[in-house]
Design a protein around this nucleic acid. Structure first.
Lengths: 343, 343
DNA sequence: CTGAAAGCGCTTACAG
DNA sequence: CTGAAAGCGCTTACAG
């Protein structure tokens, strides 16, 4: 291990980076000509372009996009805020968003907010202060201070993964109450009557839970057994959760879990306890992640089309940033129940 | 759904954002005094500070950090590049990196590279062009063009998750060949002789595989059965992979999987086929993610301390960015085999 | 404690 | 096709 490879007096920048001015001097043209040779090559004669190219590569010039962005008031950066990078859920959306925006000349940077919104305003200030060309946030923004800051910024905003009739700007999401109700109806249609709910603590999980409970009441079922935990949810929470639910109500015949990871834990616990799934107990997850299709029994779950959500958000941001009219700034992408063996 | 809530003529910025100059005019002080009231409040009298605060909040002023960063040559942004946001593996490190750098006044932005390195140089140019105060990359950088660009940039760099004796700048990682060899030795110590390898296609997985194979040869075992796939790996790959391995060599008694998700698929397939784990087949994963401890049988796996890796990287970046001497710029954080039921 | 001037590295808006 | 000047919104470096 080469532990001595550090320079004797480390400095952040040994020599300052090469600037446009230096490239221009070397190529014997003006700065603006170098700028054009890089950003709009067809506006420059071939001979000049070649001289500039040579200077650029021999000097290792990398344009300072911050300076360019300051002058042109376009950063070509879109910031996405997610609660967590640990779970698999947001990855698909961020991937599609990244791909969609890259095509259109934007770079996506992801910031991690955490499920606890304590530092949200502070983080928002740091984001807005960098003047991105767009901001994609997970969930709807509730803090009045945050809403005010985003609105006042004039930056195109897309709220995602949730639904509100009063978005800050644009929105691509879904109604989690409807989703919870649909799962309840699905279980009841299969003859289940003794429902249970195992849920993480984030806001969208809580909405799904409310929809589920409301539907149960509407259908005249007994009140579902409930076990609330925190987000992000784990496999262990699923195992423990089923144990706790059974201790409360040993006759439950269906569990709706707020994540597939919880549901996987429930499947494991049920198997260890010798409880047949779906025979005695139906299990429904949320997310349709990786293993849902290939565990045994395979997992019935609810799928959100993260790719479509990301693509739509990319389109909305790009259109607004480019000054195009956005005819449909609020999109409900819905959900689908993926019926497999477990329910 | 309020589909008509868009403004009639959408523009990126309806009115330009409030600037320092406007705040200064309203507070009847100079621009520099506003700057100080915000960034170094103790340098300003209480009365002045109050006037500035009032102007700032009533006008909704959010300082343009890009402009400030351009002048001061400090962005307070550190960029982290990860192959994928979909997997659970890098989340722990990025979380610790974010927390550690936030304490020290930096904001972490994550960029997604993908496992395919086709666009790596292009992305790197976009990153370096934004002049972050530090760059954390996953894996070691191989592209000569990329190495040159990073070195020339003078930006503090930390390579992570892998090991090389010729890092670009700083490094916090581990030797995957050693890890693969250690897993092989662990299995052999348990009496396993007919080894198999199920691996994703990324570079670090390939190194683990090589270490595993080399150790098997050194110990005089027959050549391990091998099944190579691509990254990111899935649960389905694990199920299919075990099937394929058994078709090749039905007497295998141990499988080393390059991810816990693969290993979970192997566990599922083994259960469905009635193959006892660990009785007839030992299974080892990689990553020690969420479910490894609580599946049944619980999963023997290899743990990398992502939190420590992130914290160490945060410390290194902050020290170098602040001009402090970095005495130990290359850190091998090692790994540990977490022995559970499956092997 | 406060401020006038200069400058960070680019692009815009003209002009030829 | 090429360029001189101005300016993006801040902070630095002096000065008082």
């Amino acid at each position: 291990m080469d532990a001595e490879s550090t320079s004797p007096a480390p400095t952040a920048r040994d020599r300052p980076a090469v600037t446009l001015r230096e490239v221009a001097e070397r190529a014997r043209v003006s700065m603006i000509t170098v700028s054009r040779a890089i950003n709009a090559p067809h506006q420059v004669s071939e001979a000049t372009r070649a001289r500039v190219q040579e200077a650029v590569s021999s000097m290792g010039y990398v344009p300072n996009l911050v300076a360019g962005g300051l002058r042109s008031a376009r950063s070509h950066v879109v910031t996405a805020l997610v609660p967590t990078l640990t779970g698999p859920l947001f990855g698909e959306m961020v991937q599609a968003l990244t791909d969609g925006l890259e095509l259109r000349g934007f770079q996506v940077m992801v910031g991690q907010v955490g499920y606890a919104h304590s530092r949200e305003d502070e983080l928002l200030r740091a984001i807005v202060g960098r003047r991105p060309d767009g901001i994609v946030i997970t969930g709807v923004m509730h803090s009045p201070e945050g809403r005010r800051m985003l609105t006042a910024s004039g930056i195109p905003i897309v709220e995602t993964w949730d639904f509100t009739d009063t978005p800050i700007d644009m929105l691509v999401g879904l109604r989690h109450e409807e989703l919870g109700a649909a799962v309840c109806e699905h279980l009841v249609a299969q003859g289940r009557r003794h429902l249970a709910l195992l849920s993480g603590g984030d806001e969208r999980a809580a909405r799904r839970a409310r929809g589920f409970q409301a539907a149960a009441a509407r259908l005249g079922l007994r009140e579902p057994a409930v076990r609330l935990g925190k987000s992000p949810t784990t496999h262990a929470d699923g195992r423990d959760g089923l144990g706790a639910l059974l201790a409360d109500a040993s006759d439950i015949d269906a569990v709706f879990c707020s994540s597939d990871m919880l549901a996987l834990g429930v499947l494991t616990e049920a198997r260890v306890r010798g409880i047949a799934v779906p025979g005695r107990l139906a299990v429904v997850g949320f997310g349709d992640i990786d293993f849902a299709q290939t565990v045994s029994p395979s997992l019935t779950t609810v799928r959100i089309d993260g790719t479509r959500m990301g693509q739509t958000a990319a389109q909305l941001i790009a259109d607004r940033a480019n000054g195009k009219a956005v005819t449909n700034p609020v999109v409900d992408i819905g959900f689908s129940i993926v019926e497999r063996e477990s329910a």
